[in-house]
Simulated assay, not measured.
Amino acid sequence: MKLGVFSVLFAQKTFEESLDYIASKGLDAIEIGTGGYPGNAHCDPAELLADESKLKAFKDAIDARGLTISAFSCHGNPLHPQKAIASEHDAAIRNSIKLASKLGVTVVNTFSGCPGDHEDAKYPNWPVAPWPNDYQDILKWQWEEKVIPYWSEIAKLATEHNVKIGLELHGGFSVHTPATLLRLREAAGDAIGANLDPSHMWWQGIDPVQAVHILGRAGAIHHFHAKDTSIDPINVNSHGVTDMQSYTLMLDRAWQFRTVGYGHDMKTWADIISALRLVGYDYVVSIEHEDGLMSVDEGFTKAVENLQQILIREPVGDMWWV
């Protein structure tokens, strides 16, 4: 396995400054934002695809620091009922796939998106209950008319470019659990897999180790994010796991994102890393920092230090004791 970071943390730095900083921490890989919600401060795919000299300079800067690109990430909502938003996010996905193919990057990460509840809707509608039956009707329409057709098309494009799609299982979007990911994968093909982030499993009440087993046995883990979550045992009784309060209200929220080791202990994280190795995932563990109690530098540094202790780097040898 290799250790990397989702570099949108350092959008305030120049590209070269961010690369120098990441390399100074002893990391192996970088996951780069290419549009959508994370933005494209360090990598505009359309610009690089149109200019070979800029593309070469971009690649040379990464190679010179001994880093590899684990994924291009353009998390957005290409199924948004407002066409302007959907079109922008769709273009980011398609251009990211083309750029990934050109540079030999194997994964493009994003969200599945979430449609509205009918063709003239203005906002996404995320059904979370099977009754009243209206919600089932919405869900059926979304999947049959929007989710499956769109991602079947994108999966075909990705396959043609020898790229895999890592969908982050995130609340608010149609694909948010191992089961919904596997449903889409069955319909759209094996190019579709997960960018598995344990933080979103914990707040939904899903054990990340079991999520690794469920998805890993199906060969459906394409990328992995390292981010933690803490659940407040008092506040969760007031607000539930679908707490709609702002992330800034940390004292009152039911749960909040933390850096690695500050929501769950390192034995839990070691179990996750071991489960990844067990199901055959030996790619990049990419740090994502969204901890409201720590600065970017401190939260990122602590995640690096904690993960360096438990990451399994070397190939498995023969079982000499057997």
Rank of each mutant, 00 (worst) to 15 (best):
H200E: 00
V241Y: 11
N237F: 02
T248N: 11
G205P: 06
V175C: 05
R183N: 12
G219W: 09
D232N: 13
S238R: 07
D197Q: 12
D190P: 01
G240E: 01
S230V: 09
S199G: 07
H222S: 06
A226G: 12
D243E: 01
T180P: 00
L181Y: 10
I221P: 09
I234V: 10
P208R: 08
P233H: 07
L215C: 10
R185S: 15
L196H: 04
R183D: 08
H176W: 13
Y247D: 15
S199L: 11
A218G: 02
N237T: 04
T180G: 00
A187H: 06
H222R: 09
W203E: 15
H225D: 13
T229F: 04
T177G: 04
P198Q: 06
V175G: 06
W203P: 03
N237M: 07
S238A: 07
T242E: 13
V236K: 14
Q204S: 13
P198W: 12
A211L: 09
A188K: 02
A179P: 01
G189L: 11
L182M: 05
G219F: 05
A218S: 11
G193Q: 03
D190H: 01
A191H: 02
A211S: 09
W202D: 15
E186R: 03
V212W: 02
I206Y: 14
S174M: 14
N237K: 12
P233S: 10
H200G: 01
H239E: 13
A218R: 11
L184W: 00
W203D: 11
N235W: 03
G189Y: 07
A191R: 02
T177I: 05
G219M: 14
S174P: 04
G205T: 10
S174L: 14
W202R: 06
L181S: 14
M201W: 13
L215P: 05
I192R: 00
T242G: 10
I206Q: 12
V209R: 06
P178C: 02
A188V: 03
A187Y: 00
L184N: 00
V212T: 05
D232Y: 06
V212S: 02
H213S: 12
F224W: 07
G193M: 08
Q210Y: 14
G189K: 04
L182C: 01
A194R: 06
D243K: 05
Y247W: 14
S199I: 14
A191F: 04
H223S: 07
G193I: 03
A211R: 15
H239G: 15
R183A: 08
Q245Y: 06
T248D: 12
H176F: 07
A187S: 10
A220N: 03
A187G: 01
D190L: 00
V209E: 14
I234K: 04
A188L: 04
A220F: 01
I192N: 01
A220W: 02
D197T: 15
T242F: 09
H239K: 13
A188I: 05
N237A: 02
M201N: 11
W202K: 13
R217Y: 11
S246A: 08
A194E: 05
H213K: 12
V212A: 03
E186W: 00
E186K: 07
I234P: 00
N195Y: 10
T177H: 06
A188P: 03
N237R: 08
T248W: 09
D190Y: 00
R217T: 12
G216S: 10
D232A: 05
H223N: 09
E186M: 00
